[in-house]
Design a protein around this nucleic acid. Structure first.
Lengths: 225, 225
DNA sequence: CATAATGATTTTGCATACAAAATTCAATAT
DNA sequence: ATATTGAATTTTGTATGCAAAATCATTATG
């Protein structure tokens, strides 16, 4: 029944993981307030580890804390999303550069498999499938090129991007037809172990998405007036 | 109506600030263990807000947590420092780019004042003074070009860099004579509102420091064998 | 002697208690 | 009907209590 023995289960971590999925799955809706006592009971823990997890997520910006009022699921503004794309532009550029310098044979194989995944899901016409393959690709890229530090930062911002896109865009900023060649360019440069090209390709990819997002936002606000 | 009555002092925040200065001033020496009960009493608070502050500093990487063992003041390896410089290279590059696009007249004035500060302290021959002016300059730069997000990340890593350099290098990676012209180039590009040049100048600055650091580390390990 | 075993002490992880602040809600005044 | 007040209730911030794990000191064993 209970997990006795040496492997100690850390409640902070457990709460953190659960909350994170709940936020991403929209089980906790953005803008809504956290009722600590109730949520703690729901999760089967006390307020202590719950609040620890909330504070951690606050630092990751998935949650907002208002002193003496409580914790709220974060809502991201358009400006913030553009800023996050700008950040990912330079950081994932760095990850691509580093990846090209470090990649091994088996990792090249894995990268090619991910590319195949992107291609077949593009061909299948399912945007959702492509979005998933896209996330897998970026995740592998930052794992490849990121040390602990870089990986942690990028992972956080990828999660935010993802949660925003799923909610407001159906998962993608631009159509697969447009981004597939860009993904191929990044992969190619990494496999060729060409750091400059890899960084530039990754940056271009994000820059285009950021610019598209910005255009869409402008258009939106025009249509509204 | 303003949210008045806000003289509420948050113990988490208080503990966080105090711990951070204690770490930077080497009052808590790197590698040493935190004795929660004792430290809490010293700070005049209970373990709860102390542990909250420790967890926050853990996320900022100034502290390491080992489950079931405790919190320890972090020691930075050489590899990590090089990685941090790499990060700052792309992030402060971004900050410089953004700064050049947004800078106002009064900020230009301030920037020129900081430049004067760098020049006079270089002329004075005091490395310590120059190191301080250097920090003020970088701090202003990331404030200028950083949105909330970018500023927070950069601030954290600047603090780490600073604490490392003070401990192991007397405050600087390279002599003022070498870095002063680079600082001037960054400032000039920002004032000229030239984003590409500003980003490149900031990146070059960090790249050179990173390479110098790397060379020194290599030399060190050779001398040791 | 070194090392293993044992018991005592300290420390951590977590739940809980409780005062102070915030919020809700009913009652009353405008 | 709306605004105001002021209990009653909820929620937060923080301290404290306590079991389980880790560490330390001491003695026992090869």
């Amino acid at each position: 029944m209970k997990n006795l023995g040496n492997d100690h289960v850390n409640l902070d971590q457990k709460a953190y993981n659960q909350l994170k999925s709940m936020i991403l799955d929209q089980n906790l809706k953005s803008g809504s307030k956290i009722y600590q006592e109730k949520l703690a009971v729901d999760l089967g823990i006390s307020r202590t580890p719950l609040v620890n997890a909330l504070k951690k997520l606050e630092q990751e910006r998935l949650i907002t804390a208002i002193p003496r009022k409580g914790f709220y699921i974060r809502e991201f503004s358009k400006e913030e999303m553009v800023n996050i794309f700008e950040l990912r532009e330079v950081l994932e550029g760095l990850a691509a550069r580093r990846a090209s310098l470090r990649i091994t044979g088996s990792q090249i194989k894995k990268l090619n498999e991910l590319l195949t995944g992107l291609k077949t899901s593009e061909a299948s016409g399912s945007v959702e499938k492509y979005a998933k393959a896209d996330r897998r690709f970026h995740h592998f890229l930052i794992k490849l090129g990121g040390d602990d530090l870089l990986f942690n930062i990028l992972e956080t911002y990828s999660v935010i991007t993802f949660s925003y896109l799923v909610k407001f865009r159906g998962g993608l900023v631009r159509p697969p037809k447009e981004t597939l060649p860009e993904h191929m360019a990044i992969i190619e440069a990494i496999i060729n172990k060409d750091p400059e090209t890899a960084e530039q390709a990754a940056r271009d990819h994000f820059k285009r998405s950021r610019e598209k997002l910005l255009r869409d936002f402008k258009e939106e606000s025009q249509n509204r007036s």
